[in-house]
Design a protein around this nucleic acid. Structure first.
Lengths: 346, 346
DNA sequence: TTGAAAGCGCTAACAC
DNA sequence: GTGTTAGCGCTTTCAA
């Protein structure tokens, strides 16, 4: 069944059917009514492939994420999908596992499917791949790492704001030895968080000795291993901040195994504020980065470039703030770090 | 740039280019080499829409899940995607929130995009919707609830096996008052779990008094509320089984709030065995239902029907077992339920 | 306002 | 083994 059947059934031309479906205003209301009736009676669904082929617009956006299994991303996917449906767009989703090879295949598939734009929520991509995309005038949106090109937007996450709040919070609770469980070093958005931590510590005049920053790979297992390392130090940290919530969960779990009480013996702060953060035991203090807002920004960035008729400016920027969400995984240090006593030297 | 450009550049006909791309074996190796070279040099990507339009096969499978935010589903999505890529298929993913209206829109979009089959991981669908799909000879795979039609497969989850193990485990630890936090009552796969629980309890000769089965809606919040209700009973349960892991996390969290120790004062068992189950505190005992295996079965069910040339049998069935995974959230009852003492009546 | 017809990029049937 | 060509289902001129 195709557009011709509808035309026949409604006794109009296929052009009129097409116009009706596309809500072209010049169609005679009577004819339109006949067409809709026919569509309904025959249960006709237009063939999107054919429409795409002729119109050149697929109404599909690609969404590239590193790992659907990390609870931060389902939140994004869900929000992105919600908006997409609203605007009558479809999503082509891929998890790449931060693997360049899979990323490449994903992008290739997206080009083949003629997506109208791609939101890249991973750590950027190789120059050559980007060439392919940009060569095809494909609107792109990145988190932090997009190059300053027309049709390429960036969502700049203001890591510093939330991180500063977190360090401030810890410092005001007399924490001095604060460790940081970072993400994968090759992930730009992770190194940006590490940097923000170092800056915030410096601002407070707090030192970050060697070995107090250790990678947790943004996984539970990574967090586990990271804290194991941290706990083995002679000067064990009294607080640890994590580059994401999942690794914070790993840290808490390892602390539990070692008999270290959170928050009494150890404060921990996560990053992302995933839904579950509120429900782990104890409820996790975290630096929120709104998944809904992020998805919304990304979608609209793409949409703006798709709908733009004039040639677009280079490198549009959007901003997303972060903020500390206090829960129960932080507390004042129980015994302040023993400092060389200045009173009574004898 | 299209197939014609490649043909020109390689000095062959477009048919030869098409054949080369599709690995038709009769193409002269020399010509093929020229074609691949041209493809590479010009950076040509075939247009999938055009291919679909003429071949009638989109190489897209729809994947319908209730809620991407429930950590059980990302595991499925990931596994499904992995296999799909392997077979050169694409996925159209939708979360429906178990809402019939959204489900309807999702299915409509899938038909419009000419998907080759749909895996429906939710609680079934309205008769009429199914008609639409089946009318179009669309291969379908359901969990448990598919009707016995040709081109419709079912994956039968053997809930009873794991649930029986769980009840057995609890019973052997002297638990008698065992509660069940069920899923949404309108969700067939959830009622199947409840039923399995009731059966297993009956087999053990254990009673399930009124009010000991309460809905947790398969969400953390639902689990929270459910246990609040359970904890308020005069005869509080010594163990609670949950219809999924997420609600079990809610239960544990509420117990923590109420100062009830898991597992010493309360044993809890989840269902699904999500990745995180191993990492919550305490590590959650759960009934595993392999997400990878489920995705694999679903994909191959669809693939089998797509590739079938003869007319297919009605209602192919696949089976997936469940099994108890012991961790730290269960323990023997501390003080056995006080029974009317039979010795020394005076 | 409506219809006829060209053509989007490709596959497949058929002819050579 | 290779090329020519019809046509997949639709949108979009253009003419009426």
């Amino acid at each position: 069944m195709d557009i011709r059947d509808i035309a026949k059934h409604a006794k109009v031309s296929i052009a009129t059917v097409s116009r009706t479906i596309n809500h072209v205003s010049t169609v005679d209301p009577d004819l339109a009514k006949r067409v809709w009736k026919a569509i309904d009676e025959l249960g006709y669904y237009p063939n999107t492939q054919a429409r795409t082929l002729v119109s050149g617009k697929s109404r599909i956006f690609g969404l590239v994420i590193p790992d659907i299994t990390n609870p931060f991303f389902p939140g994004i996917v869900q929000a992105f999908e919600e908006i997409a449906i609203q605007y009558d767009y479809e999503i082509l989703l891929t998890s790449t596992g931060n693997d360049q090879h899979r990323m490449e295949k994903a992008i290739r598939r997206m080009i083949e499917r003629q997506v109208d734009g791609v939101a890249i929520m991973t750590f950027g991509m190789e120059e050559e791949l980007l060439e392919h995309l940009h060569f095809r005038k494909m609107p792109l949106v990145f988190i932090d790492v997009g190059p300053p090109l027309p049709l390429v937007s960036n969502i700049r996450i203001q890591y510093q704001i939330g991180v500063r709040q977190a360090v401030q919070h810890l410092a005001s609770h007399h924490h001095r030895r604060i460790a940081f469980v970072s993400g994968p070093p090759e992930l730009k958005s992770a190194t940006a968080r590490t940097l923000a931590f170092q800056n915030a510590m410096a601002e407070k005049g707090l030192e970050v000795p060697d070995g107090m920053i250790v990678s947790g790979h943004h996984t539970v297992e990574g967090g586990l291993a990271a804290f194991e390392q941290l706990a083995a130090r002679t000067e064990r940290p009294t607080a640890v901040m994590c580059s994401n919530d999942v690794s914070a969960i790993g840290v808490m779990r390892k602390a539990y195994e070692l008999g270290i009480q959170v928050p009494d013996d150890l404060s921990v702060i996560g990053f992302d504020d995933i839904h579950l953060a509120e429900f782990v035991i104890p409820p996790l203090t975290s630096i929120r980065m709104s998944q809904t807002e992020l998805a919304r920004l990304a979608f609209h960035a793409l949409l703006a470039d798709v709908e733009r008729t004039s040639l677009p400016p280079a490198g549009t920027e959007y901003f997303l703030t972060t903020e500390l969400v206090l829960r129960k995984s932080t507390a004042p240090v129980r015994k302040p770090a023993a400092e060389p006593s200045k009173t009574h030297p004898f």
